[in-house]
């Protein structure tokens, strides 16, 4: 297991994340792990007790987790949103834009490459779950 990359100031949740089904059964669970086939919207009625959502990427090419992340942020979830699994340097910037603020990749990533990935894009074309102002808004500010 590689080092956790975390872009939050609060304390890390030390409870293990449970499956969505287990989370819905256990009223005291505060950490949950979403698999690609899970519906992130199942969590929405319970967001007030969630402190950590892990979104698993078993293979980097399966992009369902990007939608899961945005759906949670659009619903107002402001706890930790952590991408875990086959998380690679070239996906980080997209993940960040979809609302992820922590990354736990299977393989250790090079720190310089990670920084370069986050610094790459001077601007963004569209709205997402981050607070970046899209180019089309800047043009008409």
């Amino acid at each position: 297991m590689a080092e956790l990359l975390r872009y939050r100031d609060d304390e890390t949740v030390d409870h293990p994340a449970v499956t969505v089904d287990a989370f819905l059964d256990q009223s005291n669970a505060n950490a949950v792990r979403i698999e690609p086939g899970d519906d992130a919207r199942d969590l929405l009625p319970h967001l007030e007790r969630v402190a950590l959502v892990e979104v698993n990427f078993p293979a980097f090419g399966d992009g369902r987790g990007y939608s899961s992340a945005r759906i949670l942020r659009e619903a107002g979830y402001d706890g930790e949103l952590r991408a875990v699994g086959d998380v690679l340097v070239d996906q980080l910037a997209y993940m960040r834009r979809c609302g992820f603020d922590a990354f736990e990749p299977d393989q250790q990533l090079d720190k310089d490459d990670v920084q370069a990935a986050f610094d790459r894009w001077p601007d963004v074309y569209q709205s997402a779950a981050d607070d970046r102002t899209p180019i089309w808004t800047k043009r008409h500010a």
Partner: peptide, 16 residues
């Protein structure tokens, strides 16, 4: 063109 901009580097839809 507006859809070109929207779809370029779209963070949610690059691993369809």
């Amino acid at each position: 063109e507006i859809l070109r901009q929207w779809s370029s580097f779209h963070p949610e839809f690059n691993y369809l």
